[in-house]
Design a protein around this nucleic acid. Structure first.
Lengths: 175, 175
DNA sequence: CCATAATAGTTTCAACTGTAACTAACCGCA
DNA sequence: TGCGGTTAGTTACAGTTGAAACTATTATGG
């Protein structure tokens, strides 16, 4: 029983700390030097890979919600970093792609991001990196399933069993 | 060279995805069932451990900024979940502690959080869990150092060497 | 075909968040 | 004692965020 946790021991909390720190570090760079939000940078990164996507496809690929994508895209278009043209077969859709300037910006920022990743990982050996990759994949997939479950549990409208699954009577947790 | 990354391969992005998923799952529960924000829940969790802390100590222990803590605390006091009394020796400070109701609430939420952590980790073997713990610790410490560095780099007001450390000329990155 | 539903993108609004400024209390040293 | 500097907590404000409503267009099925 690894019950009786403290906040500092609690995996979700530690993950959140780490992730925030990492995000802040990189965001620092592209925000202050290039005036990009995180969402905007993600849009650019994804469009560099896929050349041309619709907003909905961006939503799928970046795991951000459509309002966020909309706003990011609007800002990028205003700055001339993105091009937009209507899809010929469906006038609701519009294809988005990087402009020359967008590509140029990407090639300024991407190396920095990669550099950061390298530096971050430099504290791990090759084996550890492989383990990390593997573990994150597993956790992500599993967490995605759990999210569904927990979402439904919460959504249940009636009494049923408010606190079934009597669980360790213990101490803490965060996040 | 692990250059030429795609967003889905980029560690900071993957970390962010995982962390958000995990946070959302748990937050789901204490937000919808108990009307607690993440910060509020963290405050409760920490105060359950330490019985009595000042706001400043909470800031240190939760890694959230003082305005966030202030607002969380105010909300909790209004709901009668927290007690506040002025420190005798320093009238600026005030000791915060859980009320009976606060403790009761904690004992409703904590098991759920622990249960979630258990479920999440159930997709890993014992070895993997140990590795994960270890790697996260290392990364967190290292990331904390890097954050300082990158912060300074950005803050540098002059030209100096805008892009020293010529790095892989490559492809992508997110976040 | 027309009516209904679904989808893509956009707008609105209210809540949340962080930065910076502010107030009150303490500290230290002359 | 009293004045600059520091610290604890609070407030104000401006920017960001997400849920839900809305518009325009396309798909469906009777």
């Amino acid at each position: 029983m690894s019950s009786s946790l403290q906040l500092e021991q609690f995996l979700p909390y530690r993950l959140s700390l780490l992730s925030n720190m990492v995000s802040r570090s990189i965001a620092q760079h592209y925000q202050e030097k290039h005036g990009l939000s995180t969402t905007q940078w993600r849009v650019i990164a994804v469009l560099r890979q896929f050349s041309s996507l619709t907003a909905t496809q961006l939503v799928e690929r970046t795991a951000m919600d459509k309002v966020a994508i909309h706003r990011a895209v609007r800002g990028l278009i205003e700055r001339g970093l993105l091009l937009r043209r209507e899809a010929s077969n469906d006038r609701r859709r519009q294809w988005l792609s990087l402009s020359e300037e967008g590509i140029a910006l990407h090639s300024q920022v991407a190396p920095k991001a990669i550099e950061y990743e390298q530096q971050l990982l430099s504290c791990l050996g090759d084996t550890e990196r492989a383990q990390l990759e593997q573990i994150i994949s597993q956790l992500t997939e599993h967490a995605s399933q759990l999210e569904q479950q927990w979402l439904q549990e919460t959504a249940e409208p009636d009494q049923g069993s408010p606190s079934d699954l009597p669980q360790s009577s213990v101490n803490i947790a965060g996040e």
